[in-house]
Design a protein around this nucleic acid. Structure first.
Length: 171
DNA sequence: CGCAAGATTATT
DNA sequence: ATAATCTTGCGA
């Protein structure tokens, strides 16, 4: 059993947390996997963020406490799972895009949510205190690759996507 | 109230 | 390259 990540972990700048999340272990309702791909999103200075233009009903969770799940529906058919970062009032979240499980490598935020069974009913759940939804220390990652984010039309200059090449290249 | 855009995925 | 599918946010 690994040590559960606490609030402290999610307080640094969201780009830092996104990197640190690579290699950590995600648990949800009996399923688990190692995080191998993340992206950082941040209000105010990031045009690609949901919170770029301020607070709305949907993105309100991004402005809230760190360690909370921000889940939203995209394209009418997929969910995306994020973890809120930084201090309350500062909109920031890490999108979890890739997971390595025992039998499968899940690539893509929509597939990840489908695999774990995450949907809107878990939006707003606090991963620091939930019983069956949390993160733990995982494995150490020697190499982390930094690229621009996937699927966005703005702020493509920002290199806020983080992947672990060595874990991704397992057959 | 109407409408365009969207942090995606599967298929051609 | 494009359809599928529907919620959200903005402007009128």
């Amino acid at each position: 059993m690994g040590v559960i990540l606490e609030k402290q972990f999610f307080l640094p700048h969201v780009t830092k947390v996104a990197q640190n999340l690579i290699g950590k272990r995600l648990f949800f309702k009996g399923k688990e996997g190692v995080i191998v791909e993340t992206e950082a999103y941040r209000g105010s200075d990031d045009l690609a963020s949901h919170a770029a233009k301020g607070r709305t009903p949907r993105n309100a969770i991004m402005f809230g406490s760190p360690g909370v799940a921000y889940i939203y529906m995209i394209y009418g058919m997929h969910y995306c799972f994020n973890i809120v970062c930084e201090s309350e009032g500062q909109p920031a979240a890490v999108l979890v895009r890739g997971l390595l499980t025992q039998n499968a490598r899940i690539d893509g935020p929509g597939k990840l949510c489908r695999h774990l069974g995450l949907d809107l009913t878990y939006n707003g759940v606090n991963l620091l205190s939930a019983r069956d939804f949390y993160l733990t220390e995982g494995i150490s990652i020697p190499d982390i690759q930094v690229t621009s984010r996937i699927g966005i039309s703005k702020a493509q200059d920002k290199l806020w996507r983080f992947v672990c090449p060595s874990l991704l290249s397992i057959p």
